[in-house]
């Protein structure tokens, strides 16, 4: 598989063409945040519905490239029904998978099996400019969760 095929795997293209959880949410339990990638003009808005400490629903609007759109779509599938703590742990593991977080000493091996379909985004590590596309929805999600926890 060449690097480009590794970047544009079938799952990525599928989630780009048919993004899941598109739309908006309304109501008192909903928190929304917008994220922008000033480099390329990608925009995403993420709505999360939080009941207790569980993310019971998530919807996404915006525009962007295949990497940011599919990353948002895959993320929405992965986190629905998870607790806020579980989501935060996943965000951290996801960023480690795509080599965003600095790892002290020996890098901890990442078991791609635990990521399910999200592992398809790992090909982005060979394209440093595109890592920001992949992380945009995740960073925006974190802002929404922080907003929810702040009240």
């Amino acid at each position: 598989m060449n690097d480009l095929d590794d970047l544009y795997r079938e799952i990525i293209l599928d989630h780009y063409k048919n993004p899941r959880n598109q739309g908006i949410l309304e109501g008192p339990a909903v928190h929304a945040e917008e994220g922008f990638n000033p480099l390329c003009g990608d925009e995403v808005k993420i709505y999360v519905k939080i009941e207790g400490d569980i993310v019971t629903d998530i919807k996404i609007t915006g525009q962007g490239c295949s990497i940011s759109r599919s990353s948002a779509s895959l993320m929405s599938q992965a986190i629905k029904g998870c607790s806020i703590e579980e989501v935060k742990a996943l965000v951290s593991r996801f960023k480690r998978m795509i080599a965003v977080e600095e790892v002290q000493g020996e890098p901890e091996p990442v078991d791609l099996r635990e990521f399910g379909e999200l592992a398809a985004l790992q090909g982005v590590v060979k394209f440093p400019v595109r890592i920001k596309c992949a992380t945009l929805p995740w960073n925006t999600l974190m802002l929404a969760l922080d907003g929810a926890q702040a009240g």
Binding site: C40, G64, C65, I67, R130
Partner: peptide, 26 residues
């Protein structure tokens, strides 16, 4: 149906350098 970033990425694989983005003219 192909985002400009993806266009530029595939073009790069062919050695073709183009700009993709908002060109500082939002």
């Amino acid at each position: 149906d192909v985002h400009p970033h993806d266009v530029a990425q595939v073009l790069d694989q062919h050695g073709v350098c183009v700009r993709a983005g908002h060109h500082c003219a939002k």
